[in-house]
Simulated scan of single mutants.
Amino acid sequence: MLYPILALISGLILLVWSADKFVLGAAATAKNFGMSPMLIGLTIVSFGTSAPEILVSFMASTSGAGDLAIGNALGSNIANIALVLGITALIAPLPVKSGVLKKELPLLLGVTILAGVLIFDFHLGQLDGIILLITLGVCLYLFSRFQKNAPQDALADDEEDLPSLENRKAIFWLIIGLVILACSSKLLVWGASEIAYSLGVSKLVVGLTIVAIGTSLPELAASVASALKNHHDIAIGNVVGSNIFNLVAVMAIPGLIAPIGMDEIVFQRDYVVMLGLTFLLLAFALWQKPPSISRFEGGILASAYAGYLVLLYTMTVS
């Protein structure tokens, strides 16, 4: 038990440090290459912080633990919206630009509904995995189109607060931060999973809680660091992009490698919670004028996550 606890602590420390460097490199790269911070958040940061989920999903699928992979994808999305955005908004209220409200958030909702259609039969097969991967390509294309059509004055406003680093140094911190993010997350998840398994917790619940929270910590660290640096677009784009990656990339892996059936509760409880939180996020952004996620709404999201964990606990022990 000692080694898993040490892995948990050291993984968390490295995670926080690498997230700060990763955001620094990502923001500077956005400025140097003329890319908007939102596009960086939706692509580079989102893929980087989803790397732990992708790795865990691949390892779980190849070892016959596909239910852990599914739990990881759904649980991470629930954690990203309720825990990551909730805590980030509590620290620094997040403005939501009209472009995000009209394009990226509806795209996330559409992908979430598509994922529900594919698992409605409580089975994830190879055809489902192929459809999800095709959807990933469509989403990447749309991200690029969205940012090309963004108003130039909005992009200029974003770039004013970006750090100034030469290309070589910016890319260095981007890569170093990304590598350590992935490694520290793996270390943290291993330690947490070993502790959970020793207590006799099911693989699905481990995927929905311990592994999901562990693999969502990069998103939490990167989003909080971005918000504190006033890079709100990276914080919002990171969560939206990461949730899309989790559904179309992470969840596609078990379908492609080892098609699996799943318990009805996965759809009836966990998917429904994820879909409900996605609708809630969109509603919160629409409610405020101008659109934003306030501290009060961040508190509601964080409380919703605590309630979800209580629900999992009560259903597990009953």
Rank of each mutant, 00 (worst) to 15 (best):
R295C: 07
L90P: 01
A252R: 08
T29Y: 02
G64S: 09
L74N: 07
S46Q: 08
Q288T: 03
S63K: 15
H231V: 04
W190D: 08
V111F: 05
V111E: 03
I175E: 00
V239N: 01
W17A: 15
N246V: 10
A304L: 15
L311M: 13
K31F: 01
R269A: 13
A182I: 13
V272Y: 11
K102D: 02
T43L: 05
L162D: 00
I257M: 15
S294R: 09
F284K: 02
R295S: 10
S36I: 02
L24Q: 13
W173G: 00
Y313N: 10
A258D: 13
E53T: 08
D263Y: 15
D20S: 14
V224A: 08
D233Y: 05
G137I: 09
I300D: 03
S193L: 08
V310G: 04
L132C: 10
R168F: 04
S46N: 02
G48M: 10
I260A: 15
L107Q: 05
Q147I: 01
G255H: 12
L286P: 01
S46C: 10
T62L: 13
L109Q: 08
D128P: 09
I54C: 09
S318T: 09
Y197C: 01
P52V: 13
Q147V: 00
V239P: 00
L14F: 15
A150Y: 13
A150E: 15
K169Q: 07
S98G: 05
